[in-house]
């Protein structure tokens, strides 16, 4: 199944019929504006639970804007507006009575540049638990260890947990940020170019980690590295000029896309 949108028609990108999985994120006719500029146009798509969805497209296509909508990170930007719906777990995240802090607890995010707090490795992971009111030291220690194990960092840091996070390499810092996001047990993990500042070995580790994490989490990853989207994603969405052009299972997008414009992009003919 393959879908694209244009100005005249709305076709709903529906992956539910593929394998019958539960829809975790349901985007319905979503538009997003920076002041007068339309960054996302009439986007509709469903993201299934425990899958990895890659979002690709040329710079300025709206992929990061789209990602940041899922935990309302764009709210901090002045003069933005949006309409349409984004449902997570069946609830509209733009409802007036929605608790945004709780949303961000459920929808974790890791950014392009690793941004550990100026604290120890342990405190970076424990911080989220503490500000969520957890005081039990044993519980925090167990949770921190588990999160560091889940982010495939534990073996490398277990003997220096109380050293500064800044002493870690770039790849380790990025995995620490993932551990920090995992500690508060989110349902969804948003990754915005998580490996673009890393060397190939560190990138491979992050990619293997992402593959492992989908057992527990729904993952959406924005990447300008098409090969990375091909390697890690179950589904791939191609955006251009704010429109969702094509959304399909990843091997279809990279071996036989339905739209010529998608083919031109994935074959490097433009972008």
């Amino acid at each position: 199944m393959s879908v694209s949108l244009n100005n005249d028609e709305l076709a709903e990108a529906d992956v539910r019929n593929d394998t019958g999985g539960e829809v975790k994120i349901d985007v319905e006719r979503f538009n997003f504006y920076y002041d007068m500029f339309i960054a996302l146009k009439n986007v509709s798509m469903q993201i299934r639970r425990n899958t990895i969805t890659g979002i690709i497209g040329p710079s300025g296509c709206g992929k990061s804007t789209f990602l940041r909508c899922f935990n309302r990170m764009n709210d901090t930007i002045p003069n933005i507006k949006y309409d349409g719906k984004i449902l997570i777990g069946g609830k509209d995240i733009f409802d007036r009575d929605l608790d945004v802090v709780d949303l961000r607890r459920r929808v974790g995010m890791v950014f392009q540049k690793s941004n550990p707090f100026p604290k120890s490795i342990f405190e970076n992971v424990a911080y989220g638990l503490r500000i969520n009111g957890i005081k039990d030291k044993n519980f925090i220690a167990e949770k921190a260890e588990q999160s560091l194990k889940n982010s495939a960092l534990w073996d490398e840091v277990k003997d220096r947990l109380h050293k500064s996070a800044f002493a870690l390499s770039g790849g380790q810092q990025q995995r620490l940020c993932i551990a920090r996001a995992l500690a508060i047990e989110p349902e969804i993990l948003l990754l915005d170019e998580p490996a673009s500042a890393l060397d190939p070995i560190a990138t491979s580790k992050i990619e293997e980690l992402i593959h492992e994490l989908k057992r527990k989490y729904t993952i959406v990853i924005v990447t300008h590295n098409m090969q990375q989207a091909a390697r890690v994603s179950d589904y791939t969405a191609f955006f251009m000029l704010g429109e969702l052009i094509e959304y399909d299972v990843t091997n279809k997008i990279f071996t036989n896309p339905s739209k010529k414009i998608t083919e031109d992009y994935v074959t490097g003919r433009f972008g």
């Binding site: 091909a230 390697r231 990843t250 091997n251 990279f254 071996t255």
Partner: peptide, 9 residues
């Protein structure tokens, strides 16, 4: 084979 070539380079 085609998937492996396309997806994993």
């Amino acid at each position: 084979v085609i998937d492996l070539l396309a997806l994993f380079q």
